[in-house]
Every structure is written in structure tokens, then in C-alpha cells.
Amino acid sequence: MNEVGFILSIMPGLLHGAITSVFVALAAISLGIILGITVCQMRRSQYWPLVRAAGLYISFLRGIPVLVILFLLFYMPSAVNIEVPSLLVAVLALGLNTSAFQAEIYRGGFNSIPAGQIEAAKALGLSRMRILTRIQLPQVLSLTGPELVNEFIILFKNSSLISVIGVTELMRRSEQLVSTTYKPVEVYLAAAIIYLALCLIISRLGERLKGKH
């Protein structure tokens, strides 16, 4: 079983790349949550310019492939002679992409809180900010939990694309190994196994969090 032995031997090297993938994904999703909630609030505001702007943001970033966002952020700065580090581009691109999807997810969450709860809060004199932080957000985050976990899994798989702009994560490490060992099937299968395992871990963690509530 040479193949199995080989796969096991390259695992450590691949796992190093996987750690980069995970970090980039975590950074991107944090950015995505902050931007997502902000854009969602813009979308739900009373000032129509904000609503329009948020709508365009969401439509554009959901309407183009992640790869194109990566290329836009990677190559455009060079047109004005600025160079942006690949890692930053990766986090930004993934973060922007997920923020647009998250904004829609949160919007569904906000809309599913019965209006009566907000009325009761208003009748008691709670301020808008207080209603958002104490009444709406806790419920929105728990209502949208499963969808957010799903989004994180998608984001993590999309992180494989950042290899094309030179970030040495799992995908790139695999390519490098293939070019030195000439064993594409074994190497890519090994990488696939790592992706599978990590996605499984993420969804298990998601279920655990849901169970706690």
C-alpha cells in the first residue's frame, strides 16, 4: 500500500497549508460579519440613498464570482502602481463576498422577529440602539446560526481560490507537491480529505452551538 504510506507522509506538509487556509477564512468571516451587519442595517434604514447603496453593494458582490473579486482587488491597484500584499487581498476579497451574502441572511433574520416585540420595546421607551443590541441581534444571530455555518463552509471552500494570487495555503501546497512528486492523484486526494475533514469539523461545531441554545 505504497499510496497510503505516501499520502500519510505528505500530510504534515499539507496541514501547514491548511492552517493558513483556516486563518484566512477566520479573518475573512470576521470582516464579513461586521460588514454584513452594517450593510444589512443600511438596507433596512429609512434613508433611501443608504438603501440603494446597500442594494447595489449586495447585488454586485453576490453577482460576480469570488475569483473575479480576487482578480479585481489584486490587479486593479497595480494600474495605479500600488502593490497590495496577497494575503490582504485574499482576506478582503473573501470578506467582501461573504458580507454581501451575510447581509441577506441577517435581513431574513431581522424580518422574522415578530413586530410586536419591537412595539413592546418602543412602548417601554427603549432607544433604537438598545432595541438593536438587546432585542434584535441576539435573536437574529441564533435564528440565522445554521445559515451562517453554511456560509462559513462555503467561504472555507472558496479559500482554495486564493492560491491563484500566490497565497501559500492548502491548495498551493498541493500544487507545489505535485510538481515535485508527479503524483497528482495521491496529493490532491490527500488535500481533498483535509478539506472534507475540516468542513465536517465546522458543521459539527455548528451543531454543537445550536444544541447549546
Binding site: 471552500k157 472558496n158 482554495s160 481560490l161 492560491s163 491548495m171 498541493s174 500544487e175 505535485v178 497528482p184 492523484v185 490532491y188 486526494l189 488535500a191 481533498a192 478539506y195 472534507l196 468542513c199 465536517l200
Partner: peptide, 23 residues
């Protein structure tokens, strides 16, 4: 289903395009 939804499309394509000839 688990495999094709749990791994990136890129890896699947690489396996097929670069790994395919091996099989």
C-alpha cells in the same frame, strides 16, 4: 454527495484534469 459538496470545485477539477490520466 458528501465528497462533492465538502470539497472545493477546484480540487475536483484538478483531480479530474491532472489526476485523470493516471486512471
Amino acid at each position: 454527495v458528501e465528497f462533492f459538496r465538502g470539497t472545493p470545485l477546484l480540487i475536483q477539477l484538478y483531480l479530474l484534469y491532472y489526476g485523470g490520466p493516471r486512471v
